[in-house]
Design a protein around this nucleic acid. Sequence first.
DNA 1: CTATTGTTGACCTATTTAATCAAGATTATC
DNA 2: GATAATCTTGATTAAATAGGTCAACAATAG
Lengths: 148, 148
Amino acid sequence: MKISTKGRYGTRALLDVALRQNEGLVQLKDIAESQQISLHYLERIVALLVKKGFLTSTRGPAGGVALGRHPADIKISEVISVLEGSMAPVSCVDDPSTCSRAGFCATCDLWGEVKESMEGVLEAVTLQDLVERQQKKLESQPRINTHE
Amino acid sequence: MKISTKGRYGTRALLDVALRQNEGLVQLKDIAESQQISLHYLERIVALLVKKGFLTSTRGPAGGVALGRHPADIKISEVISVLEGSMAPVSCVDDPSTCSRAGFCATCDLWGEVKESMEGVLEAVTLQDLVERQQKKLESQPRINTHE
DNA sequence: CTATTGTTGACCTATTTAATCAAGATTATC
DNA sequence: GATAATCTTGATTAAATAGGTCAACAATAG
């Protein structure tokens, strides 16, 4: 039941951009450095986030990315959905036709409950919430800061 | 965020055995057939469940497996834990030393909440609960029954 | 003894993950 | 308009994991 690096890195990248909103465009290079992610791989992930409108990008010198929507309007469940696909632990939860026993299988129902539960958590948290949580953490531990 | 076949097949195998408790020993061959799982692969999975005491096994002719504990005493969270490992979506939730930013990372906390939420669902359901749910389903659809 | 059934170690293959590389497109600045 | 910085994208790849197979073995009822 692990989440992949795509979802993890992508969430962290969005949070990184959100934390630096007031600094204008953020370069992938800087995100890669502060988040300790390979730049090339980050490009892949950011491309997905740009395509879905979470980020906007500007090419050329002094270019970079910025939030495409207000952080309070970005639910983490949406981000994970884009990067990881459905949170259904088994495919028959989303599409009963993929399993011949779907209609009368007690375990399938249970996996559905697990999915609902996870989604509930991630739908209740926005990028703005993450920003605030992170800022609170940085205040209480001022020495540790990934952005310099 | 998918659960692997090990967890899925294992849960279904346990449920299968639980549903046939009154029939004495259940042979892997029969479980494999009714659950449509490769016998060889099922052996692998059952071996784990036997080692952890969820099942007991008897070799030889007319041998098979039986529940090692009362179904009401088997939480599905335990089963998944044995077959899939921790439900933590990222490893730093269980072991902060695996991530240099663990102590001051808002996303890590969020993954922790996801884990708690999933565990909450699976801790609240026992094998006995699954048996009852399944029996209720079979009653309402008497024609469809994997056990003849 | 023999047939049946579970056990185990070794092995294998396909898929997914997690990148990497290189060529290309865009644009600010000089 | 040349240049350099920056994002974009298709091709490729190495490593890990999932999922499964095989064969030799151990136990035991009859």
